[in-house]
Simulated assay, not measured.
Amino acid sequence: MAWQRAYQRARTHPHTRVTRLWVHKQRCGWPLLHPDQQQLLTHIGIAPPT
């Protein structure tokens, strides 16, 4: 549930410090995310690290 809440916050308030930190953490841990989570993040413009 925590991941879903943070995802919703990223969708609705993408420019807050908390959201930026969460997005950074998700990108760093991209390989560990479930493919559905990766797809949701990609849908809102968050891409895996290059």
Rank of each mutant, 00 (worst) to 15 (best):
M1K: 14
P35T: 06
R27T: 02
K25W: 09
P48V: 04
D36H: 05
W3R: 12
P14I: 08
D36W: 03
I44C: 01
T50H: 13
L33S: 03
V23R: 01
Q39H: 08
P35H: 03
R11S: 15
C28D: 10
A2H: 12
R17D: 08
Q39W: 05
L33I: 00
A47Q: 11
L21P: 13
R20G: 07
H43Y: 03
L21K: 07
Q8V: 12
Q4D: 14
H13A: 09
C28V: 05
V23P: 07
V23M: 00
G45Y: 01
T50S: 12
T50F: 10
Q26C: 06
H13V: 13
P49E: 15
L40I: 03
R17K: 10
I46F: 01
L32R: 05
Q38I: 00
T50M: 06
P35I: 01
T50W: 08
T19I: 07
H13R: 10
P48F: 00
R11H: 14
P31D: 01
Q38K: 01
Q8I: 07
H24C: 07
R17I: 04
T42V: 06
H15S: 15
C28Y: 06
V18R: 10
V23S: 02
G29Y: 05
T19L: 03
Q8W: 12
R17A: 11
T50A: 06
Q4P: 13
I44P: 05
R5S: 09
T12M: 05
A47F: 09
Q39D: 09
T50Y: 10
L41M: 01
H34I: 04
V18W: 06
R9M: 08
W22V: 10
Q38Y: 03
Q37T: 08
V23T: 05
R5I: 13
H13S: 11
L41G: 03
W22N: 12
C28R: 05
L40E: 07
L41E: 02
H15W: 09
P14M: 06
L32T: 06
H34Y: 12
P48D: 03
V23H: 05
P14R: 04
L33T: 00
L41Y: 00
P49Y: 14
Q37F: 02
R20I: 04
P14N: 11
G29E: 13
L32F: 11
R20M: 10
R5N: 13
H34G: 09
L33M: 02
R11P: 11
A10F: 01
L33F: 02
Q26W: 03
W22S: 07
R20V: 08
D36I: 06
I46L: 01
H15G: 12
Q26A: 03
H34M: 03
Q38H: 04
M1R: 09
T12E: 14
H15L: 08
Q38E: 09
L21Q: 15
R9Y: 13
A2T: 12
P48R: 00
I44T: 10
Q39C: 05
L32A: 02
P35A: 03
V23W: 02
A10Q: 07
